[in-house]
Nucleic acid binder design. Structure first.
Lengths: 211, 211
DNA sequence: TCGTACACCGGGAAATTTCCCGTATTCGCT
DNA sequence: AGCGAATACGGGAAATTTCCCGGTGTACGA
């Protein structure tokens, strides 16, 4: 009996070709392909037998990796979640693990490694690539709190990653500069930065703003 | 006779699975797989028959898409170059076309579209996806100048995308704050921004810094 | 040898960011 | 009714960014 796997990734080319590769693994079969979390929700609804392993891209529009992972881990607790990420300095990956992922994989991983990872997940329930050059120091350092970013803060972040001055942002958001000040202050604390550039960078890294 | 295709992409998982997909297309065969420009150079050296189409990822370490495309278009002028990009607002893509690419493809493209594109490139020598939602306005607007960024400026950009103050950057680069000032000024002009945040954002967008 | 381009540097000032202080309102909860 | 938490706001000041003014030294071709 083949292991049923699902994939969520907004890059169709990657999604489809990865699917093809998994199918070539003999032991695995791809039962769901979705372009984002929302898409996945709809597709899973119609299914009676859900996949036992789900590969989830971190950066997606509409519904990102974290939200998707959280939703899956509550709705389908027995499903094994695997985070797929582009860069190893993605501090968001720790959030993925907190959201219920039992493994992470970088997209520069070799296919053999992927197969090995899937095998191990099936056997042991998790996989941990010490082989991978993921930047653990950085991750553990920021591990303490799975910071919760408000919708308003997220909205402000969008503007903060821009050429606009705070005064312009305040006008655009119909708020006082002081209020904006508060958001900035709060986010500086949450994301552990001390300048607007650092804030913008961290926002990008965590996929809080889409570029 | 199958058409020989080469792929350059730093994400092995994508590289290999895309390769698998291309091979499944019947009309195509993958003769080279490389992780970056440098890697490709070495691998092409040993080949007598070079691929007629080369798929090139834009964002790569060691030797990025632009450099690779430039090198290929001078060394192998008859080779058809196709740029592969993650985001459609990648202003760098216009540089890829200038560097000799006859087509661009987004990674969220559907595989069928890819096959169609390859077909068209083989027949007409180019492919233009008006179907694609690429942001042409933005590209054309920034088309005028293929701004040349100095190595020193690129180095400075790395620091500019950081929490560091200019004073700290100056110290780290063993330069005066005034000199740093000059770099900033110059880059503001070249990238058409008016604040450090804007500079950092544009640097990320153009792939000038790796995040 | 002159001119010009270019990388580097400095003083100073306006604008913006960053960080203090504190207040008022709303809302849910006890 | 009181209380804490969240949200919005203001005055002011230090730090940093941004933008002027200028200068020196070196390299390179006319």
């Amino acid at each position: 009996m083949k292991t049923s796997v699902g994939i969520v990734d907004d890059h169709q080319l990657f999604l489809k070709s990865l699917s093809l590769m998994l199918k070539s693994f003999k032991e695995y079969n791809v039962s769901v392909e979705a372009l984002n979390g929302k898409d996945l929700q709809e597709k899973l609804q119609d299914m009676t037998i859900t996949p036992s392993i789900m590969l989830i891209d971190v950066n997606m529009p509409v519904m990102n990796g974290i939200e998707t992972a959280k939703w899956l881990s509550t709705k389908y607790p027995q499903m094994k979640l695997v985070a797929l990420s582009m860069n190893d300095n993605d501090s968001i990956i720790i959030d993925m693990i907190k959201a219920g992922c039992c493994a992470y994989l970088l997209k520069e991983t070799h296919p053999d490694e992927l197969e090995k990872a899937l095998q191990e997940i099936n056997l042991k329930g998790f996989y941990n690539a010490d082989v991978s050059n993921i930047n653990f120091r950085r991750l553990l350092q920021s591990e303490k709190e799975a910071v919760a970013i408000t919708d308003k803060e997220k909205n402000f972040l969008q503007y903060a990653c821009t050429d606009m001055t705070y005064k312009e942002i305040a006008n655009a958001m119909f708020l006082s500069e002081r209020t904006i000040d508060g958001y900035r202050e709060s986010l500086f604390g949450k994301l552990k930065v001390q300048s607007r550039v650092g804030l913008a960078m961290e926002a990008i890294r965590r996929g809080l703003v889409s570029l």
